[in-house]
Simulated assay, not measured.
Amino acid sequence: MSLPESLAEIVDDFAAVDGQDKLQLLLEFSRELAPLPPELEQDAMEPVPECQSPLFLFVDSNDRDRVQLHFSAPAEAPTTRGFASILHQGLDGHSAATILAVPDDFYSELGLADAVSPLRLRGMSAMLARIKRHLRV
């Protein structure tokens, strides 16, 4: 699987825990979601309606060698925030080419299928798909 080291480390972290510990790790990621920079208004962000909770993202690809990702999700949506944080910590600052090479279904390697509904997993897939769509333009 072609993953940047930062994302591969996250996948390894999830592989190292079982069952409810995976959910606990996802909750830890939700608490680590980076705040939006003050100059970025939510109106400039794209909604991801496939997510069960409100999620907005912004892809700054002006520098194709160092893509900046920003996510906004409410605190009462820890699963969505956790997924956003995984993508932020795993992909932010990487090149467009590196992000585009990430397999669309990499999230299956997190082993969350037994702990999280398929609809929620589809939300993570949609986040990555929208990021890639921005980078293909």
Rank of each mutant, 00 (worst) to 15 (best):
D65A: 11
E76M: 05
K22V: 05
A73G: 08
A115F: 02
L110T: 06
L100I: 06
A115P: 00
I131R: 02
D63L: 08
N62M: 07
P37A: 11
G19C: 13
S6M: 02
L69Q: 04
A16S: 15
V17Y: 01
T79H: 00
V17G: 02
I99C: 12
E41C: 08
L55C: 07
A97M: 11
S72V: 06
E39R: 11
F29Q: 03
E46K: 14
A16G: 08
G123R: 03
E50Y: 05
P4I: 02
T79R: 01
D65M: 10
L112Y: 03
S108R: 15
P38K: 11
L26N: 03
H70W: 06
M45G: 09
F58S: 11
A126N: 06
D104P: 12
H70I: 00
S85T: 01
S108H: 14
V67S: 03
A73W: 02
S108P: 06
S125M: 12
L128W: 07
F83K: 01
P118I: 12
P4N: 09
Q20R: 14
G19Y: 12
D60F: 04
H70P: 00
T98D: 13
L40K: 10
L55T: 02
D105V: 07
R31A: 15
P118S: 15
S72R: 08
G19T: 10
L55P: 01
L110I: 09
P74K: 07
A16W: 02
E28S: 14
Y107W: 13
A96I: 07
E39L: 09
V116Y: 04
A15M: 11
E46V: 13
A113Y: 10
D114M: 10
E5Y: 07
A8L: 08
D114K: 13
V17W: 02
S61P: 03
E109W: 12
H94Q: 13
V11T: 04
R120H: 09
E9Q: 14
A34C: 11
